[in-house]
Write a protein that binds this DNA or RNA. Structure first.
Lengths: 316, 316
DNA sequence: CTTGTGGTTGAGTAATTGCCCATGAGCAAA
DNA sequence: TTTGCTCATGGGCAATTACTCAACCACAAG
């Protein structure tokens, strides 16, 4: 319509077209006729504006920072999937936010129509997540526990989450009828050879997706608090470089499973393959930072749900 | 808690979808499958993100034509600051583009670290601009309204923008607890003498920067449409040479405030000094051309945000 | 004068997106 | 419980956008 002077540069036209498209919300057809060019040219100008970074888009929502952190963490550690939730500065429980996020992710998997095998580990964080689950009926799926459900004193382990999950989710679920730690490698072999245990182990190996808590070590860590390890054993482990555990499997700061007697007594199923399935670790907070970093570094997990604070630590 | 987490969860999803779409450049199909929802739902989330103004696009390129116009206008009228946005040839809304530009300018002021007093007028354009503001926290600044917040029918004036601003901007804000027009000059004196009003008036006089809409007169103009003036009064004003108004202050084609009974009934604060502060007028469109030209001619404002169409008119 | 190169254009077409509508879930009132 | 309302959902389809390709132009080198 208005004849533009020929001297105005191509970038100016691109900027103008980009402005009309993104800010004014006109279609490329309208832009074309108002600038007196073909609609193809208008399209080219718009994409040029984008390519030249003339158009800057920003997301004005707390989640924006989280998404960027998630991307950065995913790229740095080669993870399949990363969810970052906003850190809650007001102290609060160790599971605020992350539990909801994890529950949402679990729910997303459970809503799939194709039958899946979902494996779960143990821990307070995972328990909190499962407690957030709404009632779902998904009779096609199977839910299997990676860890034993018998506490050192013989009672049912409270933080074995598969029972909580069974309350909310109508699906076949398969607990692991074992202690978490047995007394020796030999005993583990014997128990694992049982038919019932065998089939659960086999199923866990086929898991399509796995959710595990990431535990820190230390005398305040879950293994000690829940009585699986004595203080002395814990100190010795830490002296040997242990920094964290998943389902009882203890690893060092590089995420390598420790070659020591404790790990030979862990009765949990092996963590399902990170090559062929998704293994999502859940955890946040200062105390777990080192354990989380080790877990992603050593590829014990290939998915992560954590908070901004930990994400920033992972990126340093 | 559950309710809140569900609603904010929806916005989170919208933010995530919007981020994936606009920032990461994924298609809505990809977003849908990665979030485990249908494509239609993904599309809805993306448009929700836009509707909720989570997505903010800006053009990072000075369009030469607009810059030249801005320079020319600034020099011709001796203004401190002029922003010109491209005209939208399609007959779109009266605030497209200009609102974004004004919001960017307001944001620029609000992001200053030194405490400032920011004064705002009223009007649809200014309202649209304020609605574009992202959430900002700037507890050092103070925001004061130049105009009353009580409509002729006694309700809160919808286009009093300070309340909209308070929604987005965390700062102390000071509305003006008065009608826009009172019945007589005497009543105005009485009301202005009140302590509460007095302090607001004093603060407005100290404004570092002021944003005002520029209103045209006429029976379709805001003063009539919003019921502040009867049609007859309006006709009489126009017969006396009135062409525009700012905060209710009516001026002629040279930008001089009219010496007539209506102006004596305006309860708004005086427009802050153009000698010592920045007063930015906002407006565009054919109908406002004369009012804008008068406002800059008479130095009622010393800054202007408008579009090419008006800029070219101002230069004739 | 021909040829090659780089870049732009418009047509055609595939991909993507926006919108309408029927459906059904959730929920409050009767 | 039924009724009526609201609203999210997904299918389908039209509108819009992105991409490919051949043609064309300008210009420089041969």
């Amino acid at each position: 319509m208005v004849k533009r002077s020929e001297t105005s540069g191509r970038l100016d036209d691109a900027a103008r077209a980009g402005w009309l498209y993104y800010v004014a919300g006109r279609t490329q057809d309208e832009i074309a006729s108002s600038m007196g060019i073909s609609r193809q040219s208008a399209q080219r100008l718009v994409s040029l504006a984008v390519a030249e970074r003339l158009i800057k888009v920003r997301l004005d929502h707390p989640i924006a920072a989280c998404l960027e952190l998630a991307n950065a963490v995913r790229n740095k550690y080669g993870l399949r999937q990363v969810d970052i939730v906003p850190s809650d500065p007001g102290a609060g429980a160790a599971t605020v936010g992350i539990a909801e996020a994890a529950a949402a992710e679990i729910e997303r998997w459970l809503k799939k129509t194709d039958p899946i095998v979902l494996a779960v580990g143990t821990g307070r964080t995972l328990k909190a997540a499962v407690d957030q689950l709404p009632a779902i009926e998904c009779i096609n799926h199977r839910i299997v526990s990676l860890t034993g459900n018998i506490a050192p004193d013989g009672s049912a382990a409270y933080y074995n989450v598969i029972f909580s999950m069974a309350d909310a989710v109508k699906a076949r679920h398969f607990p692991m009828p074992l202690p978490v730690l047995v007394t020796s490698a030999e005993e583990r072999e014997t128990l694992h050879a049982q038919q019932l245990v065998r089939s659960t182990l086999d199923m866990s190996a086929q898991a399509d997706v796995t959710f595990v808590g990431i535990g820190e070590l230390g005398i305040d860590g879950p293994l000690c608090v829940d009585g699986f390890l004595e203080k002395g054993e814990m100190m010795e482990l830490m002296d040997n470089g242990a920094v964290g555990e998943i389902c009882g499997w203890i690893f060092d700061s590089e995420g390598k499973l420790l070659d020591n007697p404790i790990n030979e007594r862990v009765a949990s199923a092996p963590i399902p393959s990170r090559e062929t399935s998704v293994v999502i670790g859940i955890g946040k907070g200062k105390r777990k930072m080192k354990a989380i970093k080790a877990a992603v570094t050593g590829h014990q997990i290939n998915g992560l749900i954590t908070d901004e604070e930990v994400a920033e630590y992972l990126l340093t």
